[in-house]
Amino acid sequence: MSKTIIAARDLTRHYPVKRGFLKKIGLVKALEGINFELKTGKTLAVVGESGCGKSTLARLIAMIEAPTRGSLEINGEIASQPVTRSQRFIPKIENRKAVQIVFQNPYASLNPRHKTGTILEEPLFLNTKMQAAQRRKLAEKMMEQVGLRPEHYERYPHMFSGGQRQRIAIARAMILNPKVLVLDEPVSALDLSIQAQVLNLLTDLQEERNLAYIFISHDLSVVKHLADEVMVMYLGKVVEAAPTKSLFEKPRHPYTAALLSATPTINPATRKKRITLTGELPSPLNPPKGCAFNPRCANASDICRMKAPPTETSAGRQLACFNPIA
């Protein structure tokens, strides 16, 4: 029986933008009222264009930053909530161990001056009281699990290919035996044939350890393959969230529909007429009035330009739209 391992309640993050000395000129609402629940062994995918707040969400879930409002619950207990200016944000060590993160670019996320062994043992060194020999044993076991050879222990990151580096990054995240893994575009920097290898590794690890994944991606074909649930974000808000199958078969939000249709399919016989979105993501510093998507939306009506649509939940689907696709 799987239980809810991690949940977000009205998770929000705002960044003040300053120019010059102490002059506040605006507020970027990077993340606004995110709600989700994730069960062990399941995968929640987060999709959206760049600048929609995907990576901010990843940072909040990994507890790198505190939210401005709302809270993050792990195992039913509040793990992260807003802090006042005088407090420092220090999440509990068990919670930090429970959630780990793999970053997008394996060329930038590994310290070039550390050997693989050092990279893998650092989390153990910081978070546990293990002895050196124990750490090494665990690191070697982990390397074997992600498909690295024992002689790789003594090598530096530059000696590895992109796929192997991503394996190191996954091993580093896995070494504390987390319950939740945040994957921030883990395969977008990899070649096609390597991408399949890394995705298989992730599926294996999930089955073996009953991990929950938060999978951030802009590649919808990968999301469709891997995720149980998909959350579509636009300018810091969730516009639609639903189980993968129903979202891909029947998108209700016009943005989801456009995103699905913009993704190229690999069947040349069915070159479809795309719903091409005009324009680009508006600046989060100066979002449009009403629904953030209204300037690019084909279904937009007057009310969309007046006020933001509330998020409604029905039949396992969150939807924020006044004129959804029937």
Partner: peptide, 16 residues
Amino acid sequence: LSSLPERASGRKLPSI
């Protein structure tokens, strides 16, 4: 082509 997630039938991708 068969390592593309879109063409995969099972949970495992046939990787090279």
